[in-house]
Design a protein around this nucleic acid. Structure first.
Lengths: 217, 217
DNA sequence: TGTAACGGAATGAACATTCATTCCTCTAAC
DNA sequence: GTTAGAGGAATGAATGTTCATTCCGTTACA
């Protein structure tokens, strides 16, 4: 191949020729259209069921009732698609959980609120939650997608540290405490999904009580 | 689906449950040839890094310093390979964790022992632990591989129920309590791996204390 | 009638698996 | 002690398949 007078300095998995072609046929702007949403919803479901590499693009097209080529009118590549989904769902999650965070409430109240909001999100969007878990640190997530995640962790870490300073939570690495709470939450959700138990039948009050006692000083 | 006639009823003792578990474990390890082990070790590492579908068989061959064809002298298919690894690691884990389970110890002692053994295994075999987590309920696991998992869960469930009957653990679905403990454990491990912190630097005593307080009545 | 969106067969790359060939090791005849 | 050769083990290029992506004929709408 002739060396291109390249604007393409990065080596990506996508062929250079493909990128050059697409530069002239721009991807449709992310105005939420029905087709675009259909594709994202179908892909979300399949990625949860089979994983990223286990899902074929034509399968996504089928489930979305769309031609395979149409997907590429809305997303540059399969990788861009999974990143778009990740960012959308993570942002949805972050807003629901973190917006209007009551910075001056007691630690007990803060914890209960965070837990309730997470449960609410998960009950309403089980697939989204599993998707976010599954792709939590996947290789194909780009910098921007990781940044969305990072911002939320920063807030949590701060909340935990402050509460520790007030001796309301156990001393020790905030990372361990957060790992316990988030991990346990995921553990409950996964144990339900394994046996097809609806998430709204879980005793979330019990779960919240358990986890508060796990971390309180 | 035909449920197999379980030997474990609510009247079984924990000692009996442990015995049933032990009887189901194969006595001798499969004949371990050097090549076969090289392949399994290489595949384990790659499956952890890239996932099952994300790993190409020739990549496994390369890392194992073996011809691609050689893999098929030892395993029928890529799927058979991942199942062999799963069974080997799960069995290793199960033996280390549940062998000689002290059925008559106090619940507190039982919990501490189980937790310590899990931590020990994970520190010694971080990749194995992550692999088992990752493939926990994957589509390509066959019936036998799932059965290995199932037997261990049965023992745990029984231990939890008995302790609940004695009012030493919180009342509620054993599934929720186990989900919390296992999930939290995974959460800690994952939080370490994210930042490349060695697992033996974790404050496991703190973690154990947290989780005991989560589930104790 | 012209234009943008769409569908899905076509394309080429990458993959899992196979198989004709080579390599190794052990045996036994000299 | 050397060597011929038999047979199992190993190899990696070849094979057929599957996949992400492209491309162009069709459709919908102005």
């Amino acid at each position: 191949m002739t060396p291109p007078p390249s604007k393409l300095t990065e080596t990506t998995t996508t062929a250079e020729a493909a990128a050059v072609y697409r530069a002239s046929q721009p991807v449709i702007a992310p105005v939420a259209g029905s087709k675009r949403d259909q594709i994202m919803e179908a892909a979300l479901g399949l990625f949860v069921e089979r994983g990223f590499y286990g899902t074929a693009v034509p399968e996504i097209a089928d489930r979305a009732s769309v031609g395979a080529g149409t997907i590429y009118r809305y997303f540059e590549s399969k990788e861009a698609l999974v990143n778009a989904i990740y960012r959308q769902e993570k942002t949805k999650f972050a807003h629901l959980v973190v917006d209007d965070f009551p910075a001056s409430a007691t630690t007990r109240e803060q914890f209960r609120l965070l837990f309730d909001r997470m449960a609410k999100f998960t009950i309403a969007n089980p697939e989204s939650f599993v998707f976010l878990e599954l792709h939590h640190h996947a290789r194909y997530l780009d910098a921007e997608s990781r940044a969305v995640e990072e911002r939320m962790m920063l807030l949590f870490t701060h909340v935990v540290s402050s509460a520790q300073a007030r001796r309301e939570l156990k001393a020790g690495s905030p990372r361990v405490l957060m790992g316990i709470v988030m991990g346990a939450f995921v553990g409950i959700v996964r144990s339900c999904i394994e046996i097809d138990q609806p998430l709204d039948q879980v005793d979330w009050t019990l779960a919240e009580q358990c986890l508060w006692e796990a971390i309180r000083s």
